[in-house]
Design a protein around this nucleic acid. Structure first.
Lengths: 331, 331
DNA sequence: AATATAAATGTAAACGTTTAAATAGGAGGA
DNA sequence: TCCTCCTATTTAAACGTTTACATTTATATT
């Protein structure tokens, strides 16, 4: 069953059928009605490959994901998916597992026109490559815009988030505040670490690099970080972490040492993944508006899909600091 | 740059170029060499849409996922992806969020030929619909084959897994063993619950339905289940759970009641997700060979892609029972 | 050398759409 | 009646491949 079959059943040419399908106003109401009824009767659906070949569009967009094992991305993708569907785009999720060759392989889908655009949740390739990619193809970065790249992006103000948390800690009387960060996601990391330093400086606490531990983002790195921080004199009474998994590892270490989390030492996570409410104590965290990060990313991409020369925008969405037991609750 | 351009550069017809691209042996070695060098020089890549239109194949397969927020699926998808890529197939991940209309929408991609086949990690639609789908399109179920449906599938022996765990508990002297299960994934659930009952029966312990709690698969349902089980007289000394999240919820409740997990009460999870090693105590669990579940699923699908009438196979892969602190370790 | 056979290459149709350009059919005006 | 303008519709080309079939060229056989 193709457009020609429908045309025959209607005693019309394929062109008219195509016009009906594509809501072209240049078709008589009576004709349109007849065609639609036949299409409905035979449950005809236009072949997307034929259409793609002719229009040179795939109506698919690629979502590039660093890993599937981070719960954080789930809701972002949902935001992208639902917004994309409204505009008739399907999404195709690809996972790079943080490997550059995988990233390059999947980005090739843009050049090969397998997809019309791409939203990337993380890139390893360098800024110039991103800039040139974004100049030639609809491309948007979500959460982790590459530094110094000219590209549309959506993120939160990572610096401000940690700044605000540290300020709150200082306001509550904490004098020694540690930070456990990672060493991979360059942009957000730098923002978060800068926020930490800026808040200390603005509120008259001298920065000591020994109070910042950087490893990877695994649970065990959080424990390692906490151990190192607890050896610092005077012992920190608050720790801000660059991810929930780090915070979780940190609390587990603290608990193992008989240190009461939320009482002796306050711990703040990042991303507000669902695990935060499953742990004991429940984990305070900084919430990113995940659904909206996805949604706005697609909206930016859509502008590029309409006009590749439209100006690059940087969108900053609001975050929320959510207090739970690990910071002594209810602030 | 298309196949015609290459043909012109080579002073050959498009047919010959196409033959070279598709490794058709009917082309002279010298010609092949020349064509390949030109293809390489201009970095020509055949247009996949044109090819798809002509061959009536998309070389894409759909992976249908119930949710993105379950870490369990990540490695399965990797197994599918890597195996699929070897055969020249790309994968397209779609998430149903456990909604039937989403499932139907995505399965439609099969009928519309947007994808050549589908591996589904979970289906809500009824057995007859699955059977008929599988008869007409390459379709494989992974982990959760629909009961009474005639379809290729890959899974572990869920019944045996729980049977073995319960037997181990009994061998260790446990007399009262509870189970916390869910009420959604019909097939694996039934298997696991049957394994529980069968082991009790085979080793002379009377089954009491009050020792099986069924809710959903959320963390909090695990806590609710544990609470109910702890009210049972005599108090159970072991609990087997149908998922790690349930087990986690259960241990959190037990801990909150001052009950020592792994000493007073042993807890066994299911799926061996990475969270098992992050908790305190670390969580014993039943490991499913996730990568291989994905890999074998694709291999089954590939058989169907070659010949839709090939016989339906049911593959059972081995599981492992992994003891950690929550069952008193090191067995 | 003439012919038969095999190998290499070319020709053209086909896949299912969309869309510019051509055409038909009316309505209205003179 | 004829002409002009619309509007609705058709025609046919185009998108980039693959592939059955036709043709050419090379090789082997007599």
């Amino acid at each position: 069953m193709n457009i020609k079959d429908i045309a025959n059943k209607c005693n019309l040419s394929v062109a008219t059928i195509s016009r009906v399908i594509n809501n072209d106003p240049k078709v008589a109401d009576s004709t349109r009605k007849k065609v639609l009824s036949v299409i409905d009767k035979y449950k005809f659906v236009p072949n997307i490959t034929g259409r793609s070949l002719r229009t040179q569009k795939s109506n698919k967009i690629l979502v590039l994901l660093p890993t599937m094992s981070n719960q954080f991305y789930s809701e972002i993708i949902q935001g992208i998916e639902e917004t994309a569907e409204e505009k008739g785009y399907a999404i195709l999720v690809a996972v790079t597992n943080l490997q550059e060759h995988q990233e390059i392989k999947y980005l090739h889908m843009l050049r090969m026109k397998h997809v019309d655009g791409c939203i990337s949740l993380f890139n390893t390739i360098e800024a110039d490559a991103i800039t040139s990619l974004a100049k030639n193809y609809p491309f948007v970065q979500c959460c982790e815009p590459t530094m110094n790249a000219d590209v549309s992006s959506v993120e939160i103000n990572n610096r401000q988030a940690v700044y605000d948390v540290v300020k709150q800690f200082i306001d509550k009387g904490h004098k020694t505040i540690g930070m456990i960060s990672g060493d991979y996601y360059k942009t957000s990391e730098l923002g978060r670490e800068t926020g930490y330093q800026d808040a200390l400086r603005d509120y008259g606490i001298k920065f000591d690099k020994n109070l910042v531990v950087k490893n990877f983002y695994r649970y065990e790195d959080g424990a390692i970080g906490a151990k190192k921080l607890m050896a610092y004199k005077p012992r920190p009474t608050a720790i801000v972490c660059a991810s929930d998994s780090l915070a979780l590892g940190a609390t587990s270490y603290l608990k193992s040492q008989g240190i009461k989390v939320g009482v002796d030492v306050c711990v703040m996570g990042f991303d507000n993944t669902s695990i935060t409410t499953y742990t004991s104590p429940t984990l305070s965290s900084i919430n990113q508006p995940r659904y909206d990060l996805g949604k706005e990313s697609f909206k930016l991409l859509y502008e590029k899909l309409q006009d590749i020369n439209s100006v690059n925008k940087k969108i900053i969405l609001p975050f929320q600091i959510i207090h739970r037991e690990s910071t002594g609750c209810d602030n």
